[in-house]
C-alpha cells in the first residue's frame, strides 16, 4: 500500500492572480478616471470622487443580490417593478397618515414579500423558467403600483427623509456608507460562508447539490427574499433622492442591473463569478457616465456603451471558460443514452 500525499497548500500562481476579469475592470475604472481628470481640472478632488456615486448607487443595491441570482443560474427581471411597488406603497401609506419610519419598514416588508412570492413560484413550479415567472410578476407588481397611484405622484416626505439620498456623514455620502456595508455583507455571505458555497454549488450542478443534502428550495427562497429586501433599499433611496414617487419609477433598472452583473464577469450559465466584479462594474460605468456628462455627450451614448460591453464581455467570458474546461474528462457513457 503506497503512501500518497495529497497537497493542501495552494501554490501561489501569478497567472491565476493576474488573469482575473476583475483586473480588467480595475483598468477600465482607472482609465475612465484618468480620462475624466484630463477633461476637467476640477475633477480630481475628494468631493467629486465621493459625491459622484450618489447619483448611481440607488440601483447598485440591486446588483448585489442579482449577482447571487445569476450565480444560481436564474434571472430576475421583476426587480424594477418591485422597486416601483414598494416605493409607491411607502409614499401612499405615508400620505395616508402612517408615520414615516413605519412607512419605510412597510416598504421593506412589501418588497421582501414580493421577492418571496417569486421564490415560492419558482420552487413550487419548477417546470417554469425564472424568466417566465419573473416576467409575469414584473407585470403584476407594476400593475399593482398603477392600481394604487394611477398616474399621480405621491411624496411630500418629511424633511429628514431626504438625508437618505442627499445627506453625508462628514465628507462621505450616507448612501455610500450604506452601500459599503451592504457590499461587505453580501461579499462575505457569498465568498466566506456555507450559504455562499451552496449558491455556487447549485449554479454549477443543481442536481448534485440536491443529492449532497443542500436544501435547494430554501436557498432559492432566501436569495429571492434578499433580492426583494434590496429592492426595498433601492425604493427608499430612490424616493428620497426624487422627493416623490410614481408608478413608473425605475423602469428599465432590471436591464441595467443584469448588465452590471454580467459585465462584472459573472457567467450567465451560473456557478462562476465573484461579487468584486459587479461592484467594480458599477463604479466604472458610473464614473464613465459622469465623464460623459463632463464633455456633454448625450447620456444615450452610455446605453450603447453598456450594451456593447455586455455583449463583448459575454463573448470574452465564453472563450475564457471554454478554454478552462477543455481538458475535462469525457465519459464513455454520455447522457443521451444512459438508462435508469
Amino acid at each position: 500500500m503506497s503512501e500518497r500525499r495529497i497537497e493542501i497548500d495552494r501554490p501561489w500562481s501569478w497567472r491565476r492572480f493576474f488573469l482575473r476579469w476583475e483586473w480588467l475592470l480595475v483598468l477600465i475604472f482607472l482609465g475612465v478616471n484618468v480620462v475624466n481628470s484630463s477633461l476637467s481640472e476640477y475633477y480630481l478632488n475628494l468631493d467629486t470622487f465621493l459625491g459622484t456615486p450618489m447619483s448611481f448607487l440607488d440601483k447598485a443595491f440591486l446588483v448585489l443580490p442579482m449577482t447571487f441570482v445569476i450565480i444560481l443560474g436564474n434571472i430576475d427581471i421583476s426587480v424594477a417593478s418591485n422597486v416601483a411597488l414598494s416605493a409607491v406603497v411607502m409614499a401612499t401609506s405615508y400620505n395616508l397618515g402612517l408615520p414615516m419610519p413605519a412607512a419605510i419598514i412597510l416598504c421593506l416588508l412589501v418588497s421582501t414579500a414580493c421577492g418571496v412570492v417569486n421564490g415560492l413560484l419558482m420552487t413550487r413550479f419548477k417546470e417554469l423558467s425564472a424568466v417566465i415567472v419573473t416576467l409575469s410578476t414584473m407585470i403584476i407588481y407594476r400593475g399593482i403600483a398603477y392600481m394604487i397611484l394611477e398616474n399621480r405622484a405621491a411624496g411630500k416626505f418629511p424633511e429628514w427623509f431626504s438625508f437618505f439620498g442627499w445627506g453625508s456623514v462628514g465628507p462621505v455620502p450616507f448612501i455610500l456608507i450604506v452601500f459599503a456595508v451592504c457590499a461587505v455583507f453580501f461579499s462575505v455571505l457569498l465568498h466566506k460562508t456555507a450559504f455562499g458555497r451552496k449558491v455556487f454549488g447549485m449554479g454549477n450542478n443543481l442536481m448534485a447539490s440536491r443529492y449532497s443534502g443542500v436544501r435547494t428550495d430554501s436557498i432559492i427562497l432566501a436569495v429571492s427574499a434578499l433580492t426583494g429586501l434590496m429592492a426595498g433599499f433601492t425604493a427608499v433611496f430612490l424616493s428620497s433622492r426624487m422627493g416623490s414617487t410614481r408608478p413608473n419609477v425605475a423602469v428599465g433598472y432590471e436591464l441595467e442591473v443584469i448588465a452590471m452583473v454580467v459585465l462584472g464577469g459573472v457567467s450567465t450559465s451560473g456557478g462562476k463569478g465573484s461579487l468584486a466584479g459587479p461592484i467594480l462594474a458599477i463604479f466604472s460605468v458610473g464614473f464613465l457616465n459622469y465623464g460623459l456628462g463632463l464633455v456633454n455627450v448625450q447620456a444615450q451614448i452610455l446605453l450603447i456603451i453598456i450594451g456593447l460591453l455586455l455583449i463583448l464581455s459575454v463573448l470574452v467570458l465564453k472563450v475564457r471558460f471554454r478554454g478552462r474546461h477543455s481538458h475535462s474528462a469525457v465519459q464513455p457513457d454520455d447522457v443521451s443514452i444512459r438508462r435508469r
Binding site: V131, A259, I301
Partner: peptide, 23 residues
Amino acid sequence: RFDVLPIIATLGIMNVVRGVTYL
C-alpha cells in the same frame, strides 16, 4: 453562432439600439 443566451444578447442589443435611436 456565438451561443450567447437569447435574453442577454437581446438585452445588450436593446440598449445599443435605443442609444442609436437617440443618436
